[in-house]
C-alpha cells in the first residue's frame, strides 16, 4: 500500500513539474530551450511512476517510523529558527535535546551537561576558530 503511495506521489510531483515546465518555453518552440530538459525529465518520471504502479517488483520496503523522524526534524528546525534569534549556544542546546528525545533512554541531566560542553566547543571552533558571524548568545 505504502509502495503504491510512493510511486503515486512521485508521479504527481512529476506531473506538476511537467506542467510548470510548459511555461518555460521560449516563443519559437523549435530546438532545445529552457523547457526541453525539464519536460523530458518530468515526463519520464510520470511514465516510470505509471510503470511502477502497474508492474510490482518485490524489493525491501518498510514503513515510516514517526518518532525518530519527528525528533530529528524538530532538532534541525529548532536550530534553524533559533540560531540567528538567540545565538549559537541556545540553538545547539535546543537542537541536541530535541534530537535526544528521538530515542528511548531518558537520563536527561547528564546529557544536558554533555550538550552544554559540546555547545561551547562548537562555538569556539566555528565562531572563534573559523570566523562564523554568529553570536554565542543574543539578548532577547
Amino acid at each position: 500500500m505504502t509502495r503504491n503511495a510512493t510511486w503515486l506521489l512521485l508521479g504527481i510531483c512529476g506531473a506538476a513539474a511537467f506542467f510548470m515546465a510548459l511555461g518555460y518555453q521560449a516563443g519559437g518552440g523549435s530546438g532545445i530551450d529552457s523547457a526541453t530538459v525539464p519536460l523530458i525529465l518530468s515526463g519520464g518520471i510520470v511514465l516510470i511512476s505509471l510503470l511502477g504502479l502497474t508492474f510490482k517488483q518485490d524489493t525491501e520496503t518498510s514503513g515510516i517510523e514517526l518518532r525518530p523522524l519527528l525528533a530529528i526534524s524538530a532538532a534541525v528546525l529548532l536550530f534553524i529558527l533559533s540560531v540567528e534569534r538567540f545565538g549559537l549556544i541556545p540553538a545547539t542546546l535546543a537542537s541536541m535535546v530535541a534530537a535526544y528525545l528521538g530515542q528511548s533512554e531518558r537520563r536527561i541531566a547528564p546529557f544536558l551537561v554533555y550538550a552544554l560542553i559540546f555547545a561551547f566547543a562548537v562555538w569556539s571552533l566555528f565562531s572563534m576558530g573559523l570566523g562564523l558571524p554568529v553570536k554565542a548568545i543574543r539578548g532577547f
Binding site: I72, A75, V76, F79, I80, V83, L88, A91, T92, S95, M96, V97, A99, Y100, F111, A115, F118, A119, V122, F126, L132
Partner: peptide, 9 residues
C-alpha cells in the same frame, strides 16, 4: 545529537 548540530552549523 552532536552530529545533527555539526550538520546544522
Amino acid at each position: 545529537p552532536s552530529i545533527v548540530v555539526l550538520i546544522c552549523v
